[in-house]
Design a protein around this nucleic acid. Structure first.
Lengths: 221, 221
DNA sequence: TTAGTAAATGACTTATCGGTCAGTTATATA
DNA sequence: TATATAACTGACCGATAAGTCATTTACTAA
């Protein structure tokens, strides 16, 4: 047509070697979350990242390695960050805050999907599971365990095994996250707000001292 | 060699139309349990059942229907049976028995694998999930819910929402079954016996009445 | 302007697996 | 023993998706 057309061609694609890994990882966390490891398609990840399938292989050797990097570079930091939103207050207050902060964090469907995936599909990759355990679970357990130890020492909580209690508390919380995230559960469900209130009530009752006649622990309103 | 060989040929296979469905279902529950729905291979199910892949299709229209029948004919009766091992005693005793009986039931790796599968993969088959909910979960919830209602009425337990408490109790139990069944967890694990003792202690503390004389305000919906 | 090359593409290869069916074998019955 | 047929087999088909690579395109620097 007109010879005034500038020499620029609207390139079909651009060279962005610095940004590709991040773009791919971001797309991958979404797709893995939605479909799980096995059912996630590289074509879909590529499409969402705005690249072709071949490009993924320029940066990640295989689907499994891509998954590894998603955990390492995206998931671990994201979860570790949540663990640090809790400081200050009595042990009871911190436990309640722990429950509510995590409940709120897992309220996003994406987070719940990943929890599902970690709990139920990760065991097929034992080394990854170990890595995840060391980096995420152990940290998280330490944080909550310390709170419990302090509470026991101060008499705010009854005499209990902190490590075991961490598991018990998390079990209640995480299982309800799973249940609330399933559409079927939502049919028969009460409101999420009501659910977390019930969890907090249940857990705190389980942890408080027996309060036999003598020293009735002051129950705050 | 010898011409005394009887005319019988050691048939390569036998006609057993009455037994095939059971054989196939038994093989299927094992393979589905080990690999999940998607990763279970019909060839493997066929091999374990001692038949060829084609034979499966003489009795079941598709892999998904086979899975349905496994739930219907194998899993539901097996679980329903467990629910009935608990009768008699105080509410507290029944709850403790409920926890220990189920803990023992899920001690077999096969049972834990199926729990995983139900929690993680069943949501991809909404009608199946509904079916499972109606046949298994609802029954189980009713049984335990009745125990709680009785306990509340008699004052053995504190004022609580029975339906919500059923979820809370099951959450603790089931999540620990999952965790105990994962090899990674076993590394850092205490003994199963110790774990179930901790669960019982935790749950019973959460359910017992507040000791202090004053009227601790129960939260009722 | 023009090689030179790094980045990116997408058609292709390969493997897997659910599902089909023409052919084979066992067994009942005549 | 001969015939009919129900039960069963396993080679095959088609769809899907991970992974490869010859080719194309964007960019750089001489």
């Amino acid at each position: 047509m007109s010879s005034s057309t500038p020499p620029t061609h609207d390139p079909k694609w651009r060279r962005l070697p610095e940004e590709r890994p991040r773009q791919i990882l971001e797309a991958a966390i979404a797709v893995f979350g939605e479909h799980g490891i096995a059912a996630a398609k590289l074509e879909e990840i590529a499409a969402r990242a705005g690249v072709s399938k071949g490009t993924i292989y320029l940066y990640f050797p295989s689907k499994e390695d891509l998954f590894r990097e998603v955990i390492r570079q995206v998931l671990v930091p994201r979860i570790a960050q949540v663990e640090h939103e809790l400081t200050g207050g009595t042990a009871i207050e911190q436990i309640e805050r722990y429950l509510r902060v995590h409940w709120h964090y897992f309220d996003r469907p994406e987070a719940a999907s990943w929890l599902r995936l970690v709990l139920f599909e990760l065991h097929k990759f034992p080394d990854l599971e170990q890595f995840y355990y060391d980096e995420v679970i152990a940290l998280s357990n330490r944080v909550l365990g310390d709170v419990l130890r302090r509470g026991v020492a101060s008499g705010e909580l009854r005499q209990l095994d902190p490590a075991a209690s961490v598991s018990l508390i998390k079990a209640v919380l995480l299982m309800h996250v799973i249940w609330m995230s399933s559409p079927a559960a939502k049919a028969s469900a009460r409101a999420p707000q009501h659910t977390i209130d019930g969890i907090v009530d249940f857990v705190l009752h389980a942890l408080r001292p027996d309060a036999p006649a003598g020293v009735a622990a002051p129950v705050l309103p």
